[in-house]
């Protein structure tokens, strides 16, 4: 056990001990994204889907920040706004200290190669009429000073790196299995040597045995290419495996963020506790005696969120103030953030 821990500590800066020293790559303050709801012939705005509601966090250079939460909680939107694929409604996001939300299209284009995204569905995110070689080579055309031969060489290099045969460069996406298609998506994302990659549910559409292959690949690439990941997933066990720190989202809000072991061993927010306990453990002996926190009801609609704490309608520990005041996002112990009235400030 101890040797294992020190080994990983050598490879990656461990987030728990590094919140002061670690270099911040991405910094987010009160980031908000509302999607207008329009009705009628005049497309009048009648409301808004509050997809992301004032989230604040940092991503450290070289780490994997896991982002978990149920569907509709705003994970993808957070990732897309970070990469400026969607415009923020309010708040700030910086990359190496440069503000992204107000950046001109020209400046953004220069920065794009350094921030990439891997999508959930390798099926719909790859153009079926393009060969693998042109899919992976496309970003090189736009951004790198390579001639056709140079691009070809780089594509072959990339395919090898992600575990595909360079000889298959002229095939089309449908000729590959789901896992291989995801490798193509990964190759395209790393083509321009990015620093930061948002992995949005990269394994959700894959079979169990293939998920492990892709996660192993992402971990290998992170080490070899010094990548920083935002790893979005609803699979809490896989996030526990891959992440250094983990943030939990609910109805557009961050409700908790901590170093991975701290978050799973000592979850403070009632939602994190429930989410954690809802995940079935692949061990009949443990399952036979495990007690679950079963939440009542469904997640409210982000078009019509409850007042006060977003979780108050399902929270087993709800108090009066939770229905009135949205709890502050605060650091209760070093590196452990939570937004909950009920959590006592810890003295340490």
């Amino acid at each position: 056990m101890t040797t294992e821990v020190s080994e990983t500590a050598d490879q990656k800066p461990k987030a728990s001990s590094s919140s002061d020293q670690a270099e911040v790559l991405v910094s987010v303050k009160n980031l908000t994204k509302h999607f207008p709801i329009r009705k009628g012939v005049f497309r009048r705005e009648v409301g808004a889907v509050k997809a992301v509601e004032g989230v604040s966090f940092d991503i450290h250079k070289g780490e994997t920040l896991g982002l978990v939460g149920e569907s509709g909680s705003g994970k993808s939107t957070t990732g897309r706004v970070l990469l400026q694929l969607d415009h923020a409604t309010a708040g700030s996001a910086t990359f190496e200290g440069q503000e992204l939300t107000t950046m001109s299209e020209r400046e953004l284009r220069k920065l794009r190669p350094r921030m990439q995204m891997i999508f959930q569905d390798p099926h719909s995110s790859l153009n079926p009429r393009m060969t693998v070689s042109s899919i992976v080579g496309e970003p090189l055309k736009e951004h790198a000073d390579l001639d056709a031969a140079g691009r070809q060489k780089r594509v072959e290099e990339l395919l090898t790196l992600v575990g595909l045969q360079p000889a298959h460069a002229n095939r089309y996406p449908h000729e590959f299995s789901g896992g291989q298609r995801q490798r193509i998506g990964v190759a395209r994302a790393i083509a321009m040597n990015p620093d930061f990659v948002v992995c949005d549910e990269p394994i959700a559409a894959l079979d169990v045995s293939i998920q492990a292959q892709v996660v192993n690949l992402l971990e290998k690439l992170q080490e070899e290419l010094d990548l920083t990941y935002l790893f979005i997933s609803h699979d809490l066990s896989m996030v526990r495996h891959i992440a250094d720190r983990v943030a939990v989202m609910y109805l557009g809000h961050f409700v908790e963020l901590a170093a991975v072991d701290e978050l799973y061993d000592n979850p403070l927010h009632p939602y994190t506790q429930a989410l954690n306990s809802a995940v079935p453990v692949p061990d009949p002996v443990i399952e036979a005696t495990r007690k679950r926190i079963i939440l009542e009801g469904d997640i409210p609609s982000p078009a019509n969120p409850p007042s006060g704490c977003p979780f108050n309608t399902r929270c087993p520990q709800v108090e009066d103030r939770c229905r009135e005041v949205n709890p502050e996002w605060r650091e209760v112990t070093e590196g452990h953030w939570v937004a909950c009235h009920v959590v006592e400030p810890k003295t340490q």
Partner: peptide, 12 residues
């Protein structure tokens, strides 16, 4: 293929 706690930091 399922990540286990005692294998953190290792390849799956």
């Amino acid at each position: 293929s399922i990540p286990r706690l005692d294998q953190k930091g290792q390849e799956l």
